[in-house]
Design a binder for these strands. Structure first.
Ligand SMILES: [Mn+2]
Ligand SMILES: [Mn+2]
Ligand SMILES: [Zn+2]
Ligand SMILES: [Zn+2]
Lengths: 148, 148
DNA sequence: AATATAATTTATAATGATTCTAAAGTAGTG
DNA sequence: CACTACTTTAGAATCATTATAAATTATATT
């Protein structure tokens, strides 16, 4: 029953994103729709840098999107909670289309990130607490390298 | 019996760092000795940025040390294993004089880091492993904010 | 102690990801 | 269509970091 539209016709993907943008208070411009399709119209979530997204746009789409708009859009999506930023590297920002709480493997050679499923990490227990502070998130990064 | 020198006289701190530098293959220049004293001649380890270290040098010492030398020295010390780099922020690099394996609280408002003692975190168990890869380190960052 | 050599420091320029600016373009509203 | 606020864009500005290359210094050698 999800993804219905008007007279029960299935919505086109584009319309889903138009809806999502509008309901977020973001005008559904062709740039934002195009970026939404690249980021969210997939079976699996993934991790990307601005540079990576820029290349995707150049390869997979006809419209030209300026770098400034890519930055603007990614930050808008992050602010709305559709993306998370991940800190693995000082040189570049990385983003994650998986916005749930989860942990990561990080290949230190390639900077490739791989999601850890929650069942793959035993619950983290912090036995200390800081007075006047509350825990906002707990993030684990497991750095890995080739084992030969 | 640690920290002895020649005829059993106690080494001066400076001499300790001269020794440490020389045994690391780094010439004991006055800049490196000065930075060593600021970073390592303390009761407790701490976290710092290049900017922070630069301010310390200006306030606490007479000699002038160029920014380039601060960068060079911090990177040399990191390479020798006397410092660790911590990624909490894309804007700046942060370093840690505690080079043991340990986890952190991070105050997301102030970017202040606080070490978690090993006994404060229940052992992290990763139940999945990546074929052909071995775990190099596991780092936990517990983000905290004011709880009012 | 003077000399030679390589390492180090330094001022300054270059880099590069990100942010800013302000002008042109576009979506929504009536 | 006309109006307004939002968005996109090219290009400039920012700023932490790194590179460059000349001057200085540490150390080994005579
Ligand atoms: Mn950001
Ligand atoms: Mn570095
Ligand atoms: Zn992820
Ligand atoms: Zn620490």
């Amino acid at each position: 029953m999800e993804n219905t539209y008007k007279l029960g016709k299935k919505m086109k993907n584009k319309d889903v994103f138009v809806e999502k943008l509008r309901s977020s208070g973001l005008r559904p411009t062709k740039q934002r729709i195009q970026i939404s399709e690249l980021l969210f119209d997939r079976k699996n979530t993934f991790h990307f840098s601005i540079d990576h997204l820029n290349n995707l746009l150049k390869k997979k789409t006809k419209i030209k999107v300026s770098l400034a708009t890519i930055y603007n859009t990614v930050h808008a999506f992050k602010k709305k909670g559709y993306l998370k930023e991940i800190l693995i590297n000082r040189e570049k920002s990385y983003f994650d289309t998986n916005t749930s709480d989860h942990h990561h493997f990080l290949n230190v050679k390639t900077n490739e990130l791989i999601d850890l499923k929650n069942e793959d990490v035993e619950k983290i227990k912090i036995k200390k607490n800081l007075p006047g502070k509350k825990i906002k998130s707990i993030e684990v990064i497991v750095k890995v390298e080739n084992s030969n």
